[in-house]
């Protein structure tokens, strides 16, 4: 899957992105031929047949894990290396938090169906569902700034993924964390909503089902019956959906990273597209596909853990 998706992206990118434009604006003005010539060492020469370029690129990736060069010659690998860690952190943390928050909230509210809390949280979730990622990110930035001002010192950073001049293990961890909180928060705010709303309705179906009533009749309290029987049964569809929501979170990350000025994959993606960097864009897509695949594997594991019926077969 990942391989296919990546290759398709390569062909699309090679088709639509024009690396020559990076050189057109340069002074002295170069001829098309000169430009093509300059691109040739990076395997971007438009004169070479697409199939050849593709094969060159693909074998490099396969044999040397070399994702190619940008139109100006920078290595994609070195650009991506640290960004993967930065974005991976963000997406993983946001996904986990979204799932935990969404599911926890759904349990809390579904057992109080149509109560005050249920209505309130549902209202908030529906509202957030319709907020664009950029707006949410900005709101979080302002909230962070406001908080810092009130504290009188900078607790949370609103820009960048790390401070340049921190050394030592613990200070580094603390510094990273201070940077991570706000972007993660803004991504989570958008991500948890889906889990809350779908999980709530799944759970409600199960809470009002006959088997929960049976479980209560054997002597479980309502809360116990919901937790042990209804929740588990209703988590199975959610677990599968986590994998498929990763691309959406990733897209959200593009905007969030831009707002927070993170040097992450999202920001890189925007950059590569803007600069017609075929190889860079493809590498980002491959990263997204990889994350999705990891998510799918984790989801499968979760389903096996949750649903003993699968284990027997």
């Amino acid at each position: 899957m990942i391989v296919v998706a990546t290759n398709v992206t390569y062909l699309l990118a090679a088709w639509f992105l024009d690396p020559r434009s990076n050189y057109r604006g340069l002074r002295p003005v170069r001829t098309e031929e000169q430009i093509d010539h300059a691109l040739a060492p990076y395997n971007l020469d438009p004169r070479a047949p697409l199939a050849d370029r593709w094969w060159h690129w693909f074998s490099d990736v396969l044999l040397h894990f070399d994702w190619g060069k940008s139109p100006v010659g920078a290595s994609v690998n070195s650009e991506i290396g640290f960004r993967v860690v930065v974005s991976g952190q963000l997406v993983t943390a946001a996904t986990l938090l979204s799932v935990v928050a969404g599911v926890a909230l759904s349990v809390f509210t579904a057992s109080r169906q149509y109560g005050w809390w249920d209505r309130m949280t549902q209202l908030v979730s529906v509202f957030l569902f319709n907020v664009p990622a950029a707006v949410a990110a900005l709101a979080v930035v302002f909230a962070g700034i406001w908080l810092n001002q009130h504290l009188g010192w900078r607790l949370l950073y609103v820009a960048g993924e790390k401070s340049p001049d921190v050394s030592g293990l613990w200070p580094t961890v603390a510094d990273r964390f201070q940077h991570l909180v706000l972007p993660t928060l803004s991504l989570t705010l958008l991500g948890y909503v889906g889990y809350h709303l779908t999980q709530r309705s799944l759970l409600l179906d199960n809470i009002n089902s006959d088997f929960v009533r049976t479980a209560r009749a054997t002597g479980l309290t309502r809360a116990q019956a919901i937790r042990r029987h209804a929740l588990r049964a209703s988590l199975i569809p959610t677990a599968t959906s986590v994998a498929f929501s990763i691309p959406a979170i990733f897209t959200g990350a593009v905007i969030t990273e831009t707002v927070f000025g993170w040097n992450g994959m999202g920001q890189y993606f925007v950059q590569t597209i803007a600069k017609n960097d075929v190889h860079g864009a493809v590498a980002v897509a491959a990263f997204g596909a990889g994350m999705t695949a990891i998510g799918a594997i984790l989801a499968d594991i979760a389903v096996v853990v949750l649903d003993p019926r699968v284990r027997v077969r």
Binding site: D210, A217, T218
Partner: peptide, 21 residues
């Protein structure tokens, strides 16, 4: 008390048991 002093049998056996246990 439920299950200990009073046991209950329901109408629709097809949906009365938890499917995943």
């Amino acid at each position: 008390v439920r299950g200990n002093d009073i046991g209950m049998v329901f109408q629709d056996p097809l949906s009365a048991l938890t499917p995943i246990f």
